[in-house]
């Protein structure tokens, strides 16, 4: 039936006709749905990207959750609780969307806890001061939005749809983070210093959130063709810098990059070289909080084991009673 097998990017043999039709659908901007045929590599790429995204939301609860009990006012405490709760909710939607590709949440959780799956490198940095909560909202959620808005048009339907809701919430988070920074930057000298230190800590790690430079990104080209990605890492990073520099100026804070300057010709900011060695180290597990973050997830999972087992057994007993 198939005239010829074609190898896709991961070396998987796929029927040429189906591949051609699949690409044509994507080129026509049709959404791919869970029951549609898709190349194995497309499925794998999505599972990798979406589960990394879900894991990031879950691990991302930790650096901010760190300040819930110490938030400086009742209003800040409630906003932060609601925000971290949103992140858990995002994790839930994306895990559910990933399950449509034929994996279970248990499998994905197992991959996270055994260190097989990755999550965003940013969450391996510490949040030692209240201002870090502002910086995380402003910069980390700001960078996440740059990454995620194009994902609302991702070719995979369930992912695209979950991203629409997530982006709305992230944009709210970004604004509340910036508002924390505004209050601190206009506050006492000690508060302003707190804000500047947080910017110093999070600026470079936020830039690294867009992933390796285009010349080193191994997944980019195929993902662009399949419209899983719409912009390259460097394009998104540049957009983020151009949007964020004026915001820092408005706060009266200094971006910790002496080479940062406006380029009249390109109409963009030029910036200093990113420390890619640091990025690689953090991805490999050698960031300041990698061990702590993963251990916190492992502890929650292990300490919750008896609860999950109890719920399961209770449900079985209920089912048996109903059947009897």
């Amino acid at each position: 039936m198939y005239s010829q097998g074609l190898k896709d990017a991961e070396g998987q043999l796929e029927p040429a006709e189906l591949m051609a039709e699949f690409q044509a659908r994507i080129d026509r901007e049709e959404k791919i749905e869970p029951r549609d045929w898709m190349p194995e590599a497309y499925r794998k790429t999505l599972i990798r990207q979406m589960s990394q995204h879900a894991h990031s939301e879950i691990v991302g609860q930790l650096p901010e959750g760190n300040w819930i009990t110490r938030a400086p006012s009742l209003k800040r405490k409630m906003i932060l609780l609601a925000k971290v709760q949103d992140e858990a909710g995002h994790g839930l939607y994306i895990y559910s969307a990933t399950e449509t590709l034929g994996v279970t949440r248990d499998q994905l959780t197992d991959e996270l806890l055994t260190g097989k799956a990755k999550y965003s490198s940013i969450f391996n940095y510490p949040t030692p001061s209240w201002a870090d909560i502002g910086a995380v909202g402003w910069l980390v959620d700001g960078a996440a939005i740059m990454n995620q808005v194009p994902l609302c048009r991702s070719s995979y339907g369930p992912y695209a749809r979950s991203m629409i809701r997530i982006c709305k919430e992230e944009s709210f988070h970004q604004r509340q983070g910036y508002e924390i920074m505004t209050v601190l930057a206009r506050g006492t000298a000690a508060q302003k210093d707190m804000a500047q230190r947080a910017l110093n800590r999070f600026w470079w790690p936020a830039l690294m959130m867009f992933g390796p430079s285009d010349k080193d990104s191994k997944h980019s080209e195929q993902s662009m063709k399949w419209k899983i990605k719409r912009f390259t890492n460097d394009e998104l990073r540049q957009k983020f810098i151009d949007a964020t520099v004026p915001q820092a100026e408005h706060l009266g804070l200094t971006i910790p990059d002496p080479e940062l300057r406006w380029n009249e010709e390109t109409g963009q900011y030029d910036h200093g070289e990113i420390n890619w060695q640091e990025f690689i180290d953090v991805i490999k597990g050698n960031g300041p909080c990698n061990k702590e973050r993963l251990q916190a997830r492992i502890n929650a999972h292990e300490e919750g084991e008896w609860v999950r087992e109890a719920a399961e057994v209770y449900q079985q007993k209920q089912n048996q009673e109903e059947a009897a």
């Binding site: 405490k77 609780l81 858990a88 609860v307």
Partner: peptide, 20 residues
């Protein structure tokens, strides 16, 4: 609120923080 990020289920994490 101390449960945030440490609940036995993701769903319970959300529920506990909601009640909090």
């Amino acid at each position: 609120a101390e449960w945030c990020g440490h609940g036995p289920y993701l769903e319970e994490d959300v529920a506990l923080t909601n009640v909090s």
